[in-house]
Amino acid sequence: HHHHHGSGALAALHAEGPLAGLPVTRSDARVLIFNEWEERKKSDPWLRLDMSDKAIFRRYPHLR
């Protein structure tokens, strides 16, 4: 159930192989992290948004 927010940013994801479903670039990863943060913020208003490279690598090590 993907609803768009204002920016309408869509992340490019790997379609197949071992990385299927994972973001292709760091900016794609940022979109995913932001979208998930927006969702989680509803139940956790104090949740901090962390889109640093460090956060991205921790989450998606293949982007190193």
Rank of each mutant, 00 (worst) to 15 (best):
H4A: 11
H62C: 01
R48A: 11
L63C: 01
F34H: 06
D53H: 06
H5G: 10
P61N: 02
L63D: 00
P23Q: 02
P45M: 07
A20V: 13
A9V: 11
L63Q: 00
H5N: 12
I33R: 00
G21V: 03
H2W: 11
P45W: 05
H1E: 11
L13G: 03
H4K: 10
L22D: 02
I56Y: 01
E38P: 02
E16G: 08
S7C: 14
V24Y: 03
F34S: 04
A29M: 00
A15T: 14
L49N: 02
H5F: 12
R64L: 13
F57W: 06
A12D: 11
S27L: 15
H2E: 10
H62S: 02
L32Q: 05
D44L: 06
S52C: 04
H3N: 10
L13I: 13
A15N: 12
H3L: 10
D28Y: 02
R26E: 07
A20R: 11
L47F: 15
L32N: 02
A20N: 07
H14R: 01
H14M: 03
R40I: 06
G6K: 14
W46L: 14
M51Y: 07
N35W: 14
F57N: 14
R58Q: 15
H5L: 14
G17W: 04
H62M: 01
H14V: 04
H1I: 12
R58S: 14
D53R: 07
A20Y: 08
D44P: 05
A55P: 04
G6Q: 12
A11Q: 04
E38I: 15
F34G: 02
E39T: 10
P45V: 06
H62Q: 01
S52M: 02
G8Q: 10
V31M: 13
H62I: 01
G17P: 06
P45F: 05
H3M: 11
S27W: 14
D44C: 07
I33D: 01
K54D: 15
A15K: 13
W37F: 08
H3G: 09
E39I: 10
R26I: 15
L13D: 02
K42S: 09
H2Y: 12
H5E: 12
H14Y: 12
W37C: 01
R26V: 14
H1S: 11
A55V: 11
P23A: 01
S43P: 04
G6R: 14
V24P: 02
R26S: 08
D53L: 15
H5I: 14
H62P: 00
L22H: 03
A55T: 08
V24S: 03
K41F: 07
G8H: 11
E39A: 11
Y60S: 00
I33E: 01
N35A: 13
H3T: 11
H4I: 09
D44E: 12
L47Q: 07
K42M: 08
G17M: 02
L32A: 05
H2C: 11
A20H: 11
L22A: 03
D50E: 07
H3Q: 10
R64Y: 10
G6T: 13
I56L: 08
T25Y: 04
D28L: 02
H3Y: 11
H3I: 12
L19W: 06
L19V: 03
L49R: 02
R26A: 12
H1A: 13
Y60K: 00
A12N: 15
P18V: 07
A29W: 00
R58I: 13
E36A: 05
L19C: 08
R30D: 03
R58C: 11
N35P: 00
Y60D: 00
H4C: 13
G6F: 13
P61I: 02
H62K: 00
G6W: 14
R40N: 13
E39D: 09
D28K: 01
R30Q: 07
V24F: 05
A9D: 12
A9Q: 13
G21N: 05
E16N: 09
H14T: 03
A15Q: 14
P61C: 03
D28A: 06
G21W: 03
W46E: 14
I33T: 02
S43W: 09
R40V: 06
P23F: 00
E16V: 10
V24E: 05
E36D: 10
S52W: 01
L49A: 04
H3E: 08
G21F: 04
K41G: 05
G8R: 10
W46T: 15
P18G: 05
E16T: 12
L63T: 01
A29T: 00
S43R: 10
M51N: 05
L19K: 04
P18I: 07
S7T: 13
A9H: 14
A29F: 00
P18K: 07
H14C: 05
F57I: 13
L49H: 02
I56N: 03
A29Q: 00
V31K: 12
R30T: 04
Y60P: 00
V31Y: 08
P61M: 01
R58Y: 10
H5C: 15
A20G: 05
K41T: 08
V24M: 11
H4D: 09
Y60A: 01
R26M: 15
N35K: 14
H4N: 08
L63A: 00
H5S: 11
D44V: 04
D53F: 07
E36C: 05
K41A: 10
R26F: 11
R64N: 09
L32G: 01
W37D: 00
A29C: 01
A11I: 10
G8M: 09
H5Q: 14
